[in-house]
Design a protein around this nucleic acid. Structure first.
Lengths: 256, 256
DNA sequence: TTATACGTCGTACACTGTACGTTGTAAACC
DNA sequence: GGTTTACAACGTACAGTGTACGACGTATAA
């Protein structure tokens, strides 16, 4: 298992785990469980938040909850399902402010910003596959419900509301994934932008012929200088959010 | 190495590989190389296209080019660099139609569509990290140059042009990643949408209380019925592209 | 009390990327 | 022409991954 996929495994078992088995009341037969599914998930979350998704190995999770590696499998069918539970739990804990009488633009901005906060606090979320079609758990549902409510008086049809929300979240995810990637490059390489440039300057100067790539060289340089680096996350965020809201505004005539 | 990262490794060595060492003329000392860097990259590309990114292992690549596993390392410093080369080579082979006198909307649509085609033909591209900040190779540069040219008469500043292109490509990547994820779920599980629904219907019916998630249940059902499935790629594409162009139009006043 | 179901865990397997050392070869030097 | 030397190729090995399997002990059901 090299990929960090989500949504595999027998679905019904996963669903039961997500929604917290109703048959918990009935006492099982064998020895008592020494820990809890939520403890397993929490351990995985701590590892992911503190050391990245790569640090979430079954053995590491096991050690953190104080059981052997294989015992984790009595709480969770496998790693993909564990990732499902992690995603749903993280969504579940998001703050959900009540929507007041703001403009729809302000509400959608809040939706976008709270998702950016989420993906900034938990960067591993941008690495798990299937984020766009997440597992149907209570956290995912609560988040979906809350964010749909932000569209309440936009006058959009149900289908368009769903599409608009998906579109908005798509932007946020793309942005945060790019930001995370950019951050990780300088982290992994242990090399600042300046160092990278200094190292590669000679080769780049020879190879990036301005007559071969006139626009690329000019615009790349302009963008780099204006932003102080090859890519500026805040600037890209403001640009993208403004474009996204403008794009949706074309659909939402009058919504105030 | 569990993640499929890009952009790691000594940069200058990678750059030299990307741009094809100028010192190729000088004959080396030892025995002749039995293959070629491009053959290694091509082998990796075939594996990725036909069996997914997970099938691209150093051993598999080695076998395909007819050398031992470790010999691959005389052509490529490591796997991250191989991924860099794969990305750049794929970009390099994209079709680059000349921009005629179309409207800017039509040109940007073509940019978006050709990128969607690329990511549909090579779905593994959506899985490699760092796609948003790809390696600076000839393929990446050529693609960047060509796509910047699509903005030639939009009247945008250099900085805005770069931001707008990044924004447009961000949408395409987010969309294709979602589409690929959705496709992979039904592939991996070997379970159609209908089967999944049939299996989980009992649990979902009990758990998705319409009074707890009024909008989510109603809108989710509406979206599902309207699209014949939980998510319709073509519909999402048209919606998203229209929104994106509308959003950019707010920036591009008059550009005919 | 016995039988049964289940939690725990050690071992093991297939697979990953790649470090290391050996071997053979072809160009460079005397 | 013989020696030196740099380098391609490769076999082996190691640490690390997810997880299948079977042994063992325990707490409930009969």
């Amino acid at each position: 298992m090299t990929s960090n996929s989500t949504g595999t495994g027998q679905p019904s078992r996963t669903l039961a785990l997500l929604w917290g088995e109703p048959s918990t009341a009935r006492r099982r037969k064998g020895p008592a469980r020494s820990v809890d599914v939520t403890q397993v998930v929490d351990a995985a979350l701590v590892l992911a938040d503190e050391h990245g998704l790569a640090a979430v190995t079954m053995r590491a999770v096991a050690e953190r909850v104080g059981v052997s590696a294989m015992s984790v499998y009595t709480y969770v069918p496998g790693k993909p399902e564990l990732l499902d539970l992690m995603v749903d739990a993280t969504y579940h804990r998001m703050a959900r402010p009540t929507w007041g009488g703001q403009l729809w633009q302000d509400r959608l901005t809040l939706v976008a910003e709270s998702n950016r906060d989420l993906l900034t606090t938990h960067p591993w979320l941008t690495e798990v596959a299937g984020l766009s079609r997440p597992p149907v758990g209570p956290g995912v549902m609560a988040k979906y419900e809350h964010e749909l409510a932000a569209f309440d008086d936009t006058g959009l049809s149900d289908v368009d509301t769903d599409a608009a929300l998906t579109y908005l979240l798509g932007f946020v995810q793309a942005h945060c994934r790019a930001a995370h990637d950019a951050a990780r490059v300088t982290t992994d390489t242990a090399m600042s932008d300046a160092e990278w440039w200094a190292t590669n300057q000679p080769i780049l100067a020879r190879v990036l012929d301005p007559s071969a790539y006139p626009r690329a060289v000019r615009i790349g340089a302009a963008a780099g200088e204006a932003q102080g680096s090859a890519w500026n996350a805040d600037r890209a965020w403001r640009f993208g959010l403004a474009r996204t809201l403008d794009g949706l505004a074309a659909l939402i005539r009058d919504g105030t």
